[in-house]
Simulated scan of single mutants.
Amino acid sequence: MNYTLESAELTIAVNPIGMELSSIKSKLTGVEYMWQADPTIWKGQAPVLFPIVGALKDGYTLINVEKYEMPKHGLVRNSSKPELIKQTDNCLSFRLTWDQETLQHYPFKFQLEISFILSGKTLEIKHQITNLDNVPMPYFLGGHPAFNCPLLPGEIYEDYRIQFPQQETDSTWLIDEQGLIKNEPKPFIENSNIIPLSKDLFDDDALIFKHLKSKEATLSHKEKGAILTVKFDDFDYLGIWAKPAAPYVCIEPWLGIADSSDSNHEFTKKEGLSLVEPNQSETKSYSIIVV
């Protein structure tokens, strides 16, 4: 059963399985902004990436010389274990806590709480990562929200673009057949704030940006203007992705990225690592703002 929140402008829904955002709908127009998970194309909507982002080389990592296997994007996606812990007029909060099964894949006693806070046309997605262990806990975290694109009948994918508030010059990083990051930056955006969308844009997988100055990205229509903005002040990397020729686009704030193709498997040597001290918490948020 999905849980819902309403403001005067929007209705949102969250699937407790994976603590996954599943709907953002305008109450005025009835327009659905979230991709609705056609399983013949891609069954995800907004998976939570924790405690890794992307793939591990050969499907495993080394933590204190022990080998741990973990699926792509970690342990939260598709998990039926999260529990609803708070429901108010404007907030839904869910919690996933370590257990003996998670320790087999990630040997830390963690607690992950995700709160969905709706105010007007702004949805804040707040992640609280708590270390319940007696040793420092390394982790990675990412969002993966997918938005319908095109949004309305009669539009085409090429009508849309991703826009940044600042002029950007950055490369994207190529991905190999195993989903690992090659050490090959590819110049992509040069003194521009626009990425035009096209059906072949993601033929080589996601666009991965490490050095953007902007901390927000807007999905916009070239004639109708801005549709929605993802703000990600707490996140260092940005992924933009869709399956080739699919009618959606993901705008993905990340803390950390997939393993590099020359990884030595050491978890604590992965790029973008975050660390929580024993019995401490960190909070990381991003927001989706409908224009």
Rank of each mutant, 00 (worst) to 15 (best):
E6C: 07
L10G: 07
A13D: 08
V14Q: 04
I17E: 15
G18R: 00
S22P: 04
K27T: 02
L28N: 15
M34W: 05
Q36S: 14
T40M: 08
I41P: 01
K43E: 12
G44V: 04
G44T: 08
Q45T: 08
F50M: 10
P51N: 02
L56D: 04
Y60A: 07
N64C: 07
M70D: 03
M70L: 15
K72V: 14
V76F: 08
S80M: 11
S80L: 07
C91D: 08
L92C: 06
R95Q: 14
L96E: 14
T97P: 01
E101T: 13
L103Y: 06
P107R: 09
F108V: 09
E113Q: 15
S115K: 07
S115G: 09
I117N: 13
I117A: 01
S119Q: 14
T122Q: 15
I125P: 04
I125M: 09
K126M: 13
T130N: 06
D133G: 14
M137A: 12
L141E: 07
G143W: 05
P145K: 09
P153D: 14
G154Y: 09
I156F: 04
R161H: 13
Q163G: 02
Q163M: 12
Q163K: 15
Q166A: 14
E168I: 11
I175G: 05
I175C: 09
L180A: 02
N183I: 03
E184I: 12
P185M: 01
P185G: 01
K186S: 13
F188H: 14
F188E: 03
F188P: 00
E190L: 13
E190I: 13
I194G: 00
I195Y: 00
L197E: 10
L201R: 07
D204S: 13
F209S: 00
K215R: 14
K215A: 05
A217L: 09
T218C: 08
L219H: 05
L219E: 02
K222L: 08
G225W: 10
A226F: 03
W241P: 00
P244I: 01
P244W: 00
P244C: 02
A245R: 13
A246G: 05
Y248S: 03
E252R: 10
P253C: 07
L255M: 13
G256L: 05
S261V: 06
S261C: 03
S263Y: 07
N264K: 11
L273Q: 15
V276I: 15
V276S: 03
V276D: 02
V276F: 09
S281R: 10
S281K: 12
